[in-house]
Design a protein around this nucleic acid. Structure first.
Lengths: 353, 353
DNA sequence: CAAGAACGAAAAATCGATTTATCGATTAGA
DNA sequence: TCTAATCGATAAATCGATTTTTCGTTCTTG
């Protein structure tokens, strides 16, 4: 009977206190490592904790303090490798500091983003890592500002006047892609992307354009973007190729664009890199096992996550001062999907590494 | 000053009460929709709630009840599409019921899995959706049992004597793959997988073997598995091909195996499906844009998630009775990576759809 | 030896809600 | 008319911790 009861209800701090013959306050102090406890009593508390298998209730523990030991994370999606890794990293980092990470997906919707933020505000999270759907000027960031929440913005942001930001150095990476493509002799390059109204996309675009034109002013750069989803992008691309445009290389500013480009190449029977070269922003595991392997810009997920958490906890602990805007360097992987133009179309598939 | 204070401290139920000229208990009742409140007072409460922009603190609200409105989800990883989608689905489902989902990654470690579970127990979660690293007999499930937690096991499980289970019907899907491959005339098939000690893997293996042998008793089925990680699998596969084994088709029991197989094919310059056919368990977006598109078994993520949550909440609400073991049907996508054997090796790369 | 500092621990207040017990006023029944 | 039942609302207990306040000893020190 007693056993069953013990199995049912978790022991509280008072159970430990009575078993140890001290008050609840003393138990709390021992567990918090406060020195003003007689060693003898401390030992008895520890024994009782051991015997009852007592563990503090984080929810009750968080009740009293204004900032709870919870960190919120909002990602546009969980399905991609990038955000999946990001959540994993953030989770580990929060855990290391004794915090619990609550992650939610905005599913690429700004309305949902704001709702999630409101829920997290209800939970009185100590801080939020927000990867906005569009950019730092969305309603979510405004909500955070209006409610005095502490947070860090990552990924699709450049800089903000209220929050620290951390993102990949898109412009530098794009410039490197430009050097690679122009260096290979490409003179007509197509860039595809989802505009998202995002400063990041513009940075990628301008980073590329500036560098490419600096290297070769006569270069032709076409741009196809879509405001909303990937499907319009797909049809625009189809139209573009349909009316006879023949760039020798395509640079996709985002992963989904890379998939779209590949599937359009498929439709037309074009092979990389003989018929056309391809580079994509964002790496994925499959890109190195396909034939050809796809050249990609690798975003420094770990660095972004770690830097974001550092900045966030600095603010959580009360640091003041103007917000910082960090850019973490990317790595550009040159793989088989990039070659020199003019090898002639359909020159056979025998190009191995 | 007062404004700043108001901006700093969130209004509590007592603030609402005093603004409405009633007691906190009345506010609580109005918000809970209890009928024993004078309409006039209810209106005043609602007005005060509106004016102060009051929102219930879920943490305080959950304090009193034994089961909090939190659902825990433990996945082996977040990086793959399958588990990413799974978390997204579970999150939405929990949200619909007014619960908060706390997701954590066990990072393929049983030790971590148990630790996470202990943390969730500390949080007094109402229930847990656990996708175990190995199977239903691991230490995590034992912990749940020992502590009387309510939960549902998904994915790498078949059935359990304590918890409801939901997983894809691996055996049936594998049988379908067998019909596909045998029907195409394959007589020497290699199966690769990570054993994981998992009943699911065995189900996939046996489902295939049974069906294949039933259709053609003379068929040769080789099996390569690795207990721990993918790297041993890769070297085993390399050895296998190295010593001259030439199956005409490979069936990978898991996504990572599909990637390994593809990269080995690459190394040897083999093309699908002319040199060898390939089918993988688990679909991914990229599989339909590569050349060739990779045939795959699609797991019914939404159905698994939805069924798991239904079962879980039934238990949370107190349903008793023997645990059920659900198997959700998969879909097998026959794509270009599967062909008939004997088209001869290296017959050129011109095989388009 | 008495007054005060120092120490350790218990008692009580607190966090923000929910729920139970209590209480006052109105209405019904005898 | 007096008691009992009913209704609506408030006060108080509760959840499980933490933190502040209070209190009783012991140890100094003048």
């Amino acid at each position: 009977m007693a056993q069953q009861e013990a199995r049912q209800r978790r022991p509280s701090i008072h159970d430990v206190a009575s078993h140890a013959g001290v008050s609840a306050a003393t138990v709390s102090k021992v567990l918090a490592g406060v020195a003003t406890v007689k060693p003898e009593n401390a030992q008895r508390v520890l024994d009782a904790v051991e015997r009852l298998a007592y563990r503090v209730d984080p929810l009750a523990s968080d009740m009293r303090r204004a900032k709870r030991r919870i960190i919120g994370a909002i990602m546009p999606e969980f399905e991609s490798e990038f955000f999946g890794q990001m959540v994993t990293e953030l989770e580990g980092l929060a855990e290391q500091r004794g915090y619990t990470l609550v992650a939610a997906s905005s599913r690429e919707s700004e309305a949902r983003e704001k709702e999630i933020l409101a829920r997290m505000h209800d939970w009185r999270v100590a801080g939020v890592v927000l990867a906005p759907v569009r950019n730092e000027h969305g309603p979510a960031a405004a909500f955070m500002k209006a409610n005095g929440m502490t947070g860090v913005l990552i990924d699709r942001v450049l800089s903000d006047d209220a929050f620290d930001t951390v993102s990949a150095d898109s412009a530098a990476a794009s410039a490197q892609v430009a050097r690679m493509l122009v260096g290979k002799g490409h003179k007509h390059i197509l860039i595809i992307g989802l505009a998202e109204g995002a400063a990041t996309v513009r940075a990628r675009l301008e980073g590329f354009r500036t560098q490419a034109l600096a290297l070769d002013p006569s270069i032709r750069i076409d741009v196809i973007t879509s405001e909303v989803s990937v499907e319009p992008l797909r049809s625009s691309l189809r139209d573009y190729f349909g009316r006879g445009e023949r760039p020798t290389a395509v640079y996709s500013l985002l992963l989904k664009g890379t998939l779209v480009a590949l599937s359009e190449f498929r439709r037309r029977g074009w092979h990389c890199p003989n018929d056309i070269s391809l580079v994509g922003f964002d790496d994925a595991e499959w890109m190195q096992v396909t034939w050809p392997a796809i050249a990609a810009v690798v975003q420094p997920v770990r660095q972004i996550a770690s830097e974001a958490m550092n900045l966030l906890f600095r603010r959580v602990e009360g640091a003041v001062g103007p917000p910082t805007a960090r850019l973490e360097p990317c790595q550009v992987l040159e793989r088989e999907s990039v070659g020199s133009p003019g090898n002639g179309p359909h020159s056979g598939g025998g190009d191995r590494q």
